[in-house]
């Protein structure tokens, strides 16, 4: 049995996790989110400084929680991209040093593959094929997965502009709600009517990219509506705007995800990433999957957002599949295209 140490530093979370044979042994996380709040978004230099300070303490804490010693680690997996370059570099350099000092293999993995792999830790092995909807502050992607460790990952679609989570942040700002926008919009929407305002469902016409997303226009539509209402001197119905915007996002992402499953004859949908925490995205995904006879898998919330366990999980799949290790010379790739779990691409 090989214990895999996973390291994640692609955005504002410093994560370390330990996984063996599909089981999470321990993990730890440090977030610099509160330091970014007053800037309304993640500041790369602030995130990277926090990663350097947190890196070793987080690895130590994960080991303590797993009752393991660093010498028990048999492989190291790390996010080599995509992500904020200066942030990715911290985790990658640390992982290389650990792999070299411990004389164990290094696996430079794709961040999104980690998001998909993490559900293995909670709900067991993935089926032979499934669709993954990754919705977070940095990504909105539909992936067609086979054997995650061995097969190429088919990138069905992506956002053309803002990620879904980014749209939540921007709409929160328009409505005067706090950062991060995901939880604050969700909270405000509880008392609102999701049908109060008919915001657009971006890229849902027949001629649009079937698995493509776009949230920039939706955000602007919300801003226009709010400015028109304010210009007319009316009170801003924050709850209704929040609920109607949230409904537009949830409707769009779940509609496209279910369509991807049906188009590809796949009976399992994975929903992962920070926006999977949104109550409406979850409820609508459950409803539509049930109607279409699709099994919905959503990892527990703390594993949905960026963490080290998800990188250890994908590393564990690679180790057990006998994947080739990465070289200690591998560069960070901030805009890595997704071709397979290994950043270098599928290897079989």
């Amino acid at each position: 049995m090989t214990v895999v140490l996973g390291i994640e530093t692609s955005c504002d979370e410093t994560g370390a996790g330990l996984v063996a044979e599909g089981r999470l042994l321990g993990d730890a996380l440090s977030s610099s989110m509160s330091e970014h709040a007053r800037f309304g978004g993640v500041v790369p230099e602030i995130a990277a400084r926090a990663h350097l300070e947190a890196m070793l303490p987080v690895v130590r804490e994960a080991l303590t929680r797993a009752s393991l010693d660093l010498s028990d680690v048999g492989a190291v997996a790390v996010t080599a991209g995509p992500g904020l370059s200066t942030a990715v570099q911290v985790g990658l350099a640390s992982a290389k040093a650990f792999a070299f000092a411990l004389d164990v293999p290094l696996y430079g993995v794709h961040h999104l593959a980690g998001h998909a792999a993490v559900d293995v830790l909670e709900h067991g092995p993935l089926p032979p094929r499934c669709v993954a909807l990754v919705v977070s502050g940095g990504h909105t992607s539909l992936l067609l997965l086979g054997d995650l460790a061995r097969d190429p990952i088919v990138h069905l679609g992506d956002t053309a502009d803002d990620a879904a989570g980014e749209a939540f942040d921007k709409v929160a700002r328009i409505l005067g709600l706090p950062y991060p926008g995901g939880p604050s919009v969700d909270r405000a929407a509880r008392d609102g009517d999701p049908r109060a305002i008919a915001f657009p469902r971006p890229l849902t016409r027949p001629s649009d990219p079937r698995y493509g997303f776009s949230f920039s226009g939706l955000k602007t539509a919300v801003a226009r509506w709010v400015e028109a209402r304010q210009g007319a001197g009316g009170d801003l119905p924050v709850a209704d705007v929040a609920a109607s915007f949230q409904e537009a996002v949830a409707d769009t992402v779940t509609r496209k995800a279910v369509a991807a499953c049906l188009d590809h004859g796949v009976d399992t949908l994975l929903v992962v990433g920070g926006v999977a925490a949104n109550s409406r995205v979850r409820a609508l995904a459950e409803e539509r999957c049930a109607a279409a006879g699709i099994e919905l898998r959503v990892p527990p919330m703390r594993l949905c957002t960026d963490n080290g366990a998800m990188i250890a999980a994908v590393g564990d799949l690679l180790v057990r599949a006998g994947a080739p290790a990465s070289e200690l010379r591998i560069p960070a790739d901030p805009s890595a295209p997704l071709t397979g779990a290994l950043l270098a691409g599928p290897w079989r």
Partner: peptide
């Protein structure tokens, strides 16, 4: 320059912890 500096320091710290 910060990015390179961090690469060196986190490498040293991680090697130190492992060794």
């Amino acid at each position: 320059p910060f990015t390179g500096l961090r690469v060196g320091l986190v490498t040293a710290l991680s090697l130190g912890m492992a060794l």
